[in-house]
Amino acid sequence: MSVTEKMTSPEAVLERENLAYLGDAKGKSEGEWTPKIVAFCCNWCSYAGADLAGNNRASYPAEIKIIRVPCSGRVNPLFILRAFQKGADGVILCGCHPGDCHYMTGNYYTRRRMALLFSMLDYLGVEKGRTRVEWVSASEGAKFAATMNEFAEKIRSLGRNVRLEDIRCRN
């Protein structure tokens, strides 16, 4: 049987579905599990803040993967839903401080939009701790690293995300 066949065999799918619905994933595979975290960073402040963290060699966990967007207001809620569907354990969205948006108003939209999205996700069982908006300016390298460390720690304590995940996407 090829790997693909193994993964897609009815038994395997059933087992993983069970695991997912029972929420047992956290306990069983804790040994090898590392969280998957997506960080959307706006190009002007937070992405530069992440670069500054690098310049200052301020480390944060490797499971944080940054996706560059022009503005935090560019992040469509669908991207976040997609991330959870694809197995993300946490999603953090970083933008310029309110009032400092490079595009004047983008982060205000982000703030309101994400408040709604996150409470909807919470209702769906994706706990509030798995989603976060943080304002990081281009000069806040240390804050970026600290935020990422804190967020990764939080995700680790929450364990694997099994809600919304399309287990056909799991690999």
């Binding site: 997506v38 996706i67 991330a83 197995g87």
Partner: peptide, 13 residues
């Protein structure tokens, strides 16, 4: 949208 979606998919894969 498609580009960012592709990034999200790949980063998690």
């Amino acid at each position: 949208n498609r580009q960012i979606m592709a990034e999200v998919d790949t980063v998690l894969c």
